[in-house]
């Protein structure tokens, strides 16, 4: 990413560490994840994204570090000289497996990127081990902290709940939410500085919420859609996509992506127009684009309907 930028920073010292028995050299300041990726070790991540501050909460990237009592999150742990790291030890595989099982047994992961199911088969994750999914709590947004209804003796609790449809641009379906914090970060100081959403509640009832769960039109939301851009599970989705999926007409295989520049102002944001059957169905921006880093404003993200206007 940003390979064509002119490097202005001072050259960085190289650190040497060992990963899975191989010697790896990385610049000072690199994370273990960067070191793993540099030597082609496929490391699963869910809450990590190049353009956001690591929050290291999903724990699917954990690796074993010699001398550390617990496993460490590769996405945020900085490499140090002489570290000895295992990315595929029994402990690592067991933890990654359980973390994937925990997520898949409590959240609807069906719209995640295909890598997620690949990781699940790689680690032998079987979410059904915890019992059949329970229907979920319709009052999740009103749950008081530290309280929960009597535990089920048969099934596995889930975050299942109806999607929130409260505006014309996008839909929030928190039954798909793994609480990766990405949308909160994108809404906050990592991109938009709007702070319309935050994590509320705690424990299994922790959730992404506006203040008092008010609808988006009554919140600070400016509909930039940058939360949709970073969401890894489809919990946040263009309303157009949501409606087409409901109607059974959503067909990625019939979609083409055209890269263009946003026509509204002089900033020069790159847009990727996703077109199906000659209609724009959603708009994204490349994560590695110099100007946007994947982020747009309401006009670039949602102001495309004029293109299709016949008037």
């Amino acid at each position: 990413m940003n390979g064509h930028r002119v490097a202005l920073a001072a050259p960085r010292r190289l650190l040497t560490l060992t990963i899975d028995g191989r010697e790896v050299k990385v610049p000072e300041g690199s994370t273990l994840l960067q070191a793993c990726r540099q030597v082609g070790i496929d490391t699963p991540t869910l809450c990590y994204l190049e353009n956001l501050t690591p929050v290291n909460v999903c724990r699917v990237c954990v690796v074993e570090l010699e001398g550390s009592r617990t496993l460490v999150p590769a996405c945020s742990r900085k490499a140090e000289n002489g570290m000895v790291v295992s990315s595929d030890s029994e402990r690592v595989r067991a933890s990654r497996k359980l973390v994937l099982e925990f997520l898949a047994s409590s959240v609807d992961l069906s719209l995640c990127a295909p890598e997620v199911s690949a990781w699940m088969s790689r680690y032998g994750a079987d979410p059904a081990r915890f019992g059949s999914p329970e229907p979920g709590n319709v009052d999740r947004d009103r749950t008081r902290p530290g309280e929960h209804s009597p535990v089920s003796q048969d099934g596995a609790a889930t975050v299942a709940q109806p999607p929130k449809l409260d505006n014309d641009t996008y839909v929030r379906d928190y039954s798909r939410c793994i609480l990766c914090y990405k949308c909160v970060e994108a809404c906050g100081s990592d991109a938009q500085n709007t702070f319309a959403i935050a994590v509320a509640g705690r424990g299994f009832e922790a959730r992404i919420s506006t203040e008092f769960d008010v609808g988006l039109p009554d919140s600070a939301c400016v509909y930039c859609g940058n939360c949709i851009g970073v969401c890894p599970t489809g919990a946040l989705m263009f309303k157009s996509e949501f409606e087409m999926r409901q109607a059974g007409t959503w067909a990625p295989e019939r979609q083409s992506v055209t890269t263009t520049i946003c026509p509204y102002c002089g900033v020069g944001c790159n847009l990727e127009l996703h077109v199906q059957d000659n209609s724009i169905v959603k708009v994204t921006s490349p994560l590695d684009h110099d100007v946007t880093l994947g982020h747009l404003c309401v006009k670039g993200r949602f102001g495309y309907r004029f293109v299709q206007s016949r008037e």
Partner: peptide
């Protein structure tokens, strides 16, 4: 533990629930 988990990381947020369910079973 389920009630007092902050809910930030997956192993604790869901693990404490699965542990409670298992004991109930």
């Amino acid at each position: 533990f389920r009630d007092e988990s902050c809910g930030q990381c997956v192993p604790c947020r869901v693990g404490t629930v699965r542990q409670e369910e298992l004991l109930a079973r």
